[in-house]
Simulated scan of single mutants.
Amino acid sequence: MKTTLLVALLAATSFTSSAMTLTSQDIQEGSRMANTFAYNGFGCTGDNLSPQLSWNDAPEGTKSFAITAFDPDAPTGSGWWHWVALDVPASTHSVKRGASGDIKGAKEMGNDYGATGFGGACPPKGHGMHRYQFTVWALPTETLGLPEKPSNALIGYMLNSSALEKATLTATFVTE
């Protein structure tokens, strides 16, 4: 009897909690991104389009999302921010390919190329494979309350310190 009750309780609880997930029709975990998502400049020739992303199972209390793309392998000592989109409405659960600059209600910030919006993959020639971490952050507020023109380091700090949950999809790229 005790074993049956324990099994029933375990089964009930295993279906009640779900982690936020991030998927894409364009990029896959651990796989090389197409040149469609590579930067057009800095020695790279790509289409510079942001990939399609979809996310599910945001935690209760989510009031907005943020989308980031970060290369931790960039030879800078601090990585490279390819995309920072803040204040994405809580009703949004996907963005289409090439959505950068067209996410209703979102505020796109500067990337480390010095432009606003998405800047595609472009590791230095001969530097090998780089990882590109696309992350969707579930946030408890509609805005982060950042100062005018914050650094990406400050944005990263605020996201990490306030996120209810996050989901990451890591793709790769190497400049040939």
Rank of each mutant, 00 (worst) to 15 (best):
G105F: 01
L139R: 06
A106E: 05
A153D: 00
L154K: 06
S50Y: 03
L146H: 02
N56M: 14
W55H: 02
A153Y: 01
E60N: 13
G30W: 03
T21E: 04
M109T: 08
A106S: 02
D47C: 00
P140L: 09
E108V: 02
G145M: 02
Y113D: 08
F42Y: 13
F173R: 02
P147Q: 10
F37P: 03
D112K: 12
T68G: 01
K107F: 00
A99G: 10
K107H: 07
I155W: 06
Q28I: 05
D71T: 08
K96I: 12
L154I: 01
I67L: 14
E108P: 00
D112V: 03
D26V: 09
T13H: 02
E165N: 04
A34H: 13
P59Q: 07
W80N: 13
S78V: 07
F173S: 01
S54D: 07
F173V: 02
D102Y: 09
E176G: 13
P124T: 09
L6E: 15
L139W: 02
Q25L: 10
L22P: 05
A34S: 14
G105M: 01
K166Q: 10
T135N: 07
H127Y: 07
N56K: 14
C44Q: 01
E176A: 11
T68K: 00
A99I: 11
K104A: 06
E148P: 03
P89C: 04
P89N: 00
M33A: 15
F42D: 06
D102Q: 13
T3E: 15
G156K: 03
S54F: 07
Y157S: 12
H127K: 07
A74R: 01
K63Q: 14
K166S: 13
M33R: 05
K63N: 14
I155C: 11
E142M: 14
V84E: 00
A19V: 10
L10K: 13
V174S: 11
P150L: 05
I27L: 05
P150D: 06
V88E: 06
N35W: 14
T170H: 00
